[in-house]
């Protein structure tokens, strides 16, 4: 089975993030594999171990994205592809990413493509579905279980806390949700092996694209941090009075009633 994983490098949101002039400061920021993409990598490895085949991890990024690819290789992926847009593109959005990936997959025979449900930085959740549409294959988002038997694919999908059970067939694209699996830590032997695994680097030129083909359809106006959480308030007095005060606060102050 030819398995592909779409992977994105993101900021580590557990670390402190500083924003200045509408930009996230790169200096001192830690980068990680988008956590939802880790579920995708883990699932790809498990499916390969069960059905055989090969796992290729694909990312669109810059030179530094190699680190995240090496991590995926250390987890157990077989090959990696870095589509380096650092020199060619000034900006990009979900359209850009999907368009580049479409070109990349044009000559590939993918049986299974896995992606994260969303990226924790921009959280569009669009790249997977857009790509599947472009490739003309079925897709299922936010999956929590994946069983493949021959060409038949059984999927459990997270729907607002409920589970939807879906049957479809290969080739298919899925986006992975928390609960699908527990991503492994890259083991030390895995890390040592990863540096010998193939990592191919492409530019959009290699995919017969130029800047105009992938020009973003959206524009980022501003980036800012969420407002700081303010301290809570403890209501006092008799229970009845507290209820009355709470209702009045909800109506008049926070205006949710």
């Amino acid at each position: 089975m030819n398995i592909y994983v779409l992977l994105k490098k993101t900021f580590d949101t557990e670390e402190k993030i500083n924003v200045s002039h509408g930009q996230i400061e790169d200096d001192g920021a830690e980068f990680i594999i988008n956590p939802y993409d880790e579920y995708a990598v883990e699932e790809a490895i498990n499916q390969r171990d069960e059905h055989g085949g090969e796992v290729t991890v694909v990312t669109i990024g810059d030179e530094d994205s190699e680190k995240q690819l090496r991590t995926a290789l250390a987890m157990g992926a077989d090959k990696a592809v870095l589509i380096n847009t650092e020199d060619d593109l000034e900006s990009g959005d979900q359209y850009t990413t999907a368009k580049i990936l479409e070109a990349f997959f044009e000559d590939k025979e993918a049986d299974l493509i896995l992606a994260g449900n969303v990226a924790i930085d921009e959280a569009s959740g669009q790249v997977g579905p857009r790509l599947a549409e472009a490739l003309g294959i079925p897709y299922v988002t936010t999956i929590t279980s994946l069983k493949i038997d021959g060409e038949v694919v059984n999927i459990e999908k997270d729907v607002e806390g409920d589970v939807e059970i879906i049957e479809t067939s290969l080739p298919v694209l899925v986006t992975c949700q928390q609960g699908l699996n527990e991503p492994r830590y890259p083991s030390l032997p895995g890390i040592m092996k990863a540096k010998k695994k193939p990592l191919e680097e492409l530019e959009i030129d290699d995919l017969d694209l130029d800047e105009d083909d992938v020009e973003p359809k959206t524009k980022t106006i501003d980036i800012f941090l969420p407002p700081e959480k303010e301290a809570g308030r403890v209501l006092e007095g008799e229970l009845n009075e507290q209820v009355v005060e709470l209702v009045s606060l909800l109506k008049n102050e926070s205006k949710v009633l």
Binding site: K67, Y185, L188
Partner: peptide, 17 residues
């Protein structure tokens, strides 16, 4: 090296996780 950093990271994740 990158491998050194990855080894450090795996250890860190193992300890915190």
């Amino acid at each position: 090296t990158e491998e050194h950093k990855m080894i450090a990271k795996t250890t860190e994740e193992f300890v915190s996780g």
